[in-house]
Design a protein around this nucleic acid. Structure first.
Length: 569
DNA sequence: GCCGTTTTCGGCCCGACTGTTTTCAGTCG
């Protein structure tokens, strides 16, 4: 039996650790950066990179060359990377976690380890308390205080916690509104990862132009919900709000608003690729403008579209700015026309009080969906609550509601469970009477998940697989599926794979949805709403769909129900 | 380490803030 190949996340973690330890050892910064880029690339790839490497095809990915492919093959075949094992023997691994403390980088971590013999976080705390850090030249009492504060706040070996997009968006919008009300404000916008609709964020970014940058920055740090000011300059400030969220503001003159917005929206990888590309053509890009190196002339741009146009690209929507091929596509005029929230014509996965956890009646859900401008709603209550004749009672209520609603239709659906043995838990004769069948994994995620999902797809009554992996962001990893096989099977059978817009699901994730879309899978953007309010999660789902490069044509519920029924054949 | 519409060698984004300094290195995004 062949051992399962390592998962992309495990490979990526190993390259990140290789980068950390190499950096502490003072190795070439460009090689360290290459390891980090490779880790990111592996993490953002949908297919198994280990499988690709074993076929000699991993080096076709950007940022993966011969050397890194060989290291991946080595991990797949032996379970270990010699280069990493060697460095682990040289550096105590906990020294790398010093770098997780804010303000401490590789140079400082290395000096504390080498010059003081400190190799664990406990020893680091002890060294700071006994004022031994200040003995090192260039470090003082302030550094000791900073270390102790960070350790007391629980910063440590684990990754810093990232917040959910669904939590961050309302906060960043509130801050944007508060800044707009300041008399010196001209333009204010959200930026950063929330503008790109990335599923999680580390901090919330706001940018602005102002007639008086220092006054606007001062207003920002004195907003009522600010708990702590981390940094405060004339054009840039960072605060922590009472919810523990980190907010960054940056201000520049109006004439370079486009430059600033582009810079501060990122992603970092997108900007680096953009700037490297520009540099090859004799241009130097910063948040203040584009410098023609030869003449020293600086061009500034009031909006992003003009900036991208000057650099020779079509306008790139923020959701695509991840260094995932968008620059090449924009240069060639081949960017997709991304799906928009307003394109949605129905909801295809939601619940009512017929599910025990549902908060609204069928009529309330339907009325709310109609108010959003939808034409239909597939009611997909949990199969568990629709047994022993209850589903017929539900159908009667659906008919009743449809009788009262003009030009809106509630469809009969169900969210069936894919059992541990791969069987869909609703009898075929019941499924045959339904308009729309969603099948989802809810338990036993580690028990043959691929085979179970494939079996569900094989059921001719199943129209769609719900929240494909079952992950809960930052709580549960979800099923480790063979995504290529699932997508291949979905294409063969015409089964849809949804994007579930629940803030902690967003499942399929962006990379999976992009691969599915490219393969020809139809993808409904759903909310899995259990209440009227959560129908608004459609915005998060559409963000995810746009990050997956999906067009209106690829998103199933941009069609009318009649068109969808015809497509089902 | 990776990469190539001037390169298979010699490059590799750019600027702000902090703490410790008397002009800068380290860190961060």
């Amino acid at each position: 039996m062949i051992a399962a190949s390592p998962r992309n996340t495990d490979l990526a973690d190993q390259f990140d650790q290789l980068a950390d330890l190499s950096e502490i050892l003072g190795e070439q910064s460009f090689r360290v950066a290459a390891y980090r880029r490779a880790a990111t690339r592996i993490r953002d790839t949908a297919s198994s990179v280990a499988e690709l490497a074993l076929q000699g095809k991993a080096k076709e990915l950007p940022d993966i060359g011969k050397t890194i492919e060989a290291k991946i093959v080595e991990i797949a075949e032996t379970g270990e990377m010699a280069a990493l094992a060697k460095r682990r023997a040289e550096v105590p691994v906990e020294v790398a976690s010093f770098m997780r403390l804010p303000g401490l980088g590789p140079k400082t971590a290395a000096r504390i380890w080498r010059e003081l013999g400190v190799s664990t976080l406990a020893e680091l705390q002890n060294a700071a308390e006994s004022q031994r850090i200040r003995a090192l030249s260039g470090l003082g009492a302030a550094t000791e205080t900073k270390i102790l504060k960070a350790l007391a706040e629980g910063a440590g070996p684990s990754e810093p916690r990232r917040g959910l997009l669904g939590k961050g968006l309302p906060v960043v919008r509130e801050v944007v509104e508060a800044l707009r009300s300041h008399p010196s404000a001209i333009d204010v916008s959200d930026a950063g990862s929330t503008r790109r609709r990335r599923e999680t964020f580390r901090d919330l970014d706001v940018i602005a132009t102002s007639t008086d940058p220092a006054a606007l920055t001062a207003h920002f740090v004195s907003l009522p919900w600010v708990l702590e000011v981390v940094a405060h300059g004339e054009t840039k400030a960072t605060v922590i709000d009472r919810g523990g969220l980190r907010l960054d503001l940056r201000v520049v003159p109006p004439e370079c608003y486009g430059d600033l917005l582009q810079h501060f929206t990122g992603s970092k990888d997108h900007n680096v690729a953009l700037r490297e590309d520009a540099q090859r053509r004799g241009l130097s890009i910063s948040e203040y403008g584009v410098t023609v190196v030869e003449t020293g002339e600086v061009k500034t741009f009031r909006d992003e579209a003009a900036l991208y146009a000057f650099l020779g690209y079509a306008y790139i929507p923020p959701e695509l700015r991840e260094d995932g091929g968008e620059l090449e596509a924009a240069r060639a005029g081949k960017l997709p026309h991304l799906v928009k929230l307003a394109d949605l014509r129905g909801e295809m996965h939601c619940h009512s009080t017929w599910s025990a956890d549902g908060k609204a009646t069928i009529e309330e859900m339907a009325t709310a969906a109609a108010a959003r401008g939808y034409e239909f709603l597939c009611l997909t209550d949990h199969s568990h609550y629709l047994r022993e004749g209850r589903i017929e009672e539900q159908w009667a209520e659906i008919d009743d509601v449809n009788g009262r609603l003009d030009s809106f239709r509630v469809l009969r659906g169900v969210e069936a469970n894919i059992n541990a043995n791969g069987i869909v838990d609703v009898p075929d004769d019941v499924l045959a009477q339904l308009d729309w069948v969603v099948a989802s994994l809810h338990t036993s995620f580690d028990k043959n998940p691929t085979e179970r999902v494939l079996a569900a797809i094989d059921n001719p009554h199943v129209d769609c697989i719900g929240h494909l992996t079952g992950r809960r962001i930052s709580r549960r990893h979800g099923a480790d599926l063979d995504i290529d096989r699932v997508i291949g099977h979905a294409v063969e059978t015409g089964t849809a794979l949804e994007i579930n817009g629940q803030p902690d699901r967003l499942d399929m994730r962006d990379a999976h949805a992009r691969l599915a879309g490219e393969a020809g899978v139809l993808i409904p953007v759903n909310t899995d709403a259990h209440s009227v309010e959560s129908l608004a999660y459609a915005e998060l789902g559409i963000g995810q769909a746009r990050r997956a490069w999906l067009t209106k044509e690829q998103v199933l519920n941009t069609r009318s129900w009649v068109e969808i029924e015809v497509g089902k054949t």
